[in-house]
Design a protein around this nucleic acid. Structure first.
Lengths: 296, 296
DNA sequence: ACCCTTTATGCTCAACCCTAGTATAAGTGA
DNA sequence: TCACTTATACTAGGGTTGAGCATAAAGGGT
């Protein structure tokens, strides 16, 4: 999965999916078979494969999860290894390929404008119906607890990084079109195969990682304003942050250094341009951008 | 990799390694080929495989990293998918199998009795020699920075969870017997193939996860004293913690609840027996055991 | 020139949390 | 009984965070 954040919108690179048995026209993540003749490591193979397909040079790359796709002939299995790459958005010449808003696939994950309405209007009612239909009462109680924990019900807080847990819950509840459910906007745009699950995994990882690793900077140009930085952080975290405090955390945390230059196209007072202070890596144990309590 | 913590010692299950081309008699992690006839998911296959081999019923299981082992015939590759499982130690009937102290493989990672001597006596001198021999000066500077950051040199703090980064650095510097280096006690006991790298990956993950997920409890019996809990946390983190503060964090964090029972075999005042408060999962966003600043 | 709007940035106060202790409780064995 | 060990309670001080107020510096309209 290749992710970029442009003007506050997190976008992933998708390709047109061929018929995959379940539906037609779903978005798909770029993928392909491994060519055993190429490089020695999986990651190198990935990089050269992407370079050939899309002319994108991947910077940050991280392995996500490996799936077993089942038997593939005599004593063999087909395995899918998934990766996350962070880039800066860039035109893709390939037909059918394009950048799509991540939150189109997960409408309930974007809390930047407050709690999304779909949660109370569609997801929770549907989950409750599912719970009510479970015949095994003990299992129903366990599943109710999962719903509470992951969807922040009954006093539980909403935890942004539980993206995958929420997706799996919806999947198990039979609410996800990829699992055969009827397609409804509230449950997000479907993707080919298990690709939406891969995106959920990536988002979970990223939301966790952002707090202790300076990954956001991979998504920004070398020089940026603090507001740009904050917008990227907010886009990934899916929540709004207190501007002055964000600034303080990032500046006092030594994550950025001023370049002395200014951006005048802000619409108000010009903003200083900053750069990532690479040295922070050796100064602080877990240099991430703070994600303090959200703000509506 | 199967991990248990017994009386403050973190131990992994190892089996005797057959000749693997590099050496004989190295420890190996339990592993085996996937049988395509078995279960649908990798994790299930893993569980049933372990159950058959060692009669251990795995509780917590987490996928780690997937390695590409290279070509395996016409258009195929051999892939290794690695897992971490947490259990409670238990006798293993199998010949050649046994539990081994993790820190025998990574002597530099155990800071519970203060900074390990091997770091200054052996690792840093060897790393410096390696740096001095690099001909590309710019690369040498970069590598020096990596050493600083990961080994806590020149004002950088020691960050426990960078286990993998440290191992890779030592590996690249040619100091690891698995890479052909001469075997020296300071660089830890070697393992078969790339198994030590797998252990390093697991330890990194675990040290990171312990702070925001209540994974420690998987390694403890249902009832435990706070001191037992602290010892497990210290064993994984590789550092000593302030007893009173640890107690406060864990108790006030709602991670445990008293059972009303006491353990009288402490050697002093009897200790209350606690149990894990599962409900904390829905109360707090990131319920891990706090790892405040270390204590010598 | 002046005012209004917009965004950037500086600063402060109070609540909270963690660190590093001291102090006390309740067992054991000599 | 005392000396010792471990468990547990409590606290003063420093640092961090949350939330908001205040000021700076641009553009546009009059």
């Amino acid at each position: 999965m290749i992710l970029a954040v442009t003007e506050g919108t997190p976008r992933i690179l998708t390709i047109a999916s061929p018929a995959d048995g379940t539906a037609y026209g779903h978005n798909a993540l770029p993928w392909g078979p491994l060519d055993p003749r190429t490089d020695r490591t999986l990651e190198r193979t990935l990089r050269s494969w992407v370079a050939r397909q899309s002319r994108l040079a991947l910077g940050y790359v991280e392995q996500l999860y490996t799936f077993d796709e089942g038997r593939a002939g005599e004593g063999l299995r087909r395995i899918t290894v998934t990766y996350l790459a962070l880039v800066q958005e860039q035109a893709i010449p390939q037909a059918g390929a394009g950048w799509r808003d991540v939150y189109a696939f997960f409408p309930w994950e974007d809390w930047r404008d407050g709690r999304p309405g779909v949660i109370d209007d569609a997801l929770l009612p549907a989950l409750n119906t599912w719970l009510a239909r479970l015949s095994d009462l003990q299992q129903a109680e366990q599943e109710r607890e999962r719903v509470d924990i992951h969807f922040g019900v009954n006093g539980a807080p909403w935890v942004p990084e539980r993206v995958l847990e929420r997706y799996e819950l919806l999947y198990q509840a039979g609410l996800i079109p990829e699992a055969g459910a009827e397609r409804q906007p509230a449950f997000g745009r479907p993707m080919a195969l298990n690709h939406r699950r891969v995106v959920a995994t990536a988002l979970s990882r990223l939301r966790g990682k952002i707090k202790y690793r300076p990954v956001v900077f991979e998504l920004l140009p070398p020089r940026f304003t603090l507001w740009q930085l904050q917008q990227v952080a907010e886009a990934l975290a899916g929540m709004s942050l207190h501007k002055q405090n964000f600034r303080r955390l990032v500046e006092q945390g030594g994550l950025v250094a001023s370049t002395g230059e200014f951006a005048y196209d802000t619409g108000g007072r010009p903003a200083q341009l900053f750069r990532f202070r690479r040295r922070v890596l050796r100064e602080r144990p877990a240099p991430g951008v703070g994600l303090p309590g959200g703000v509506s």
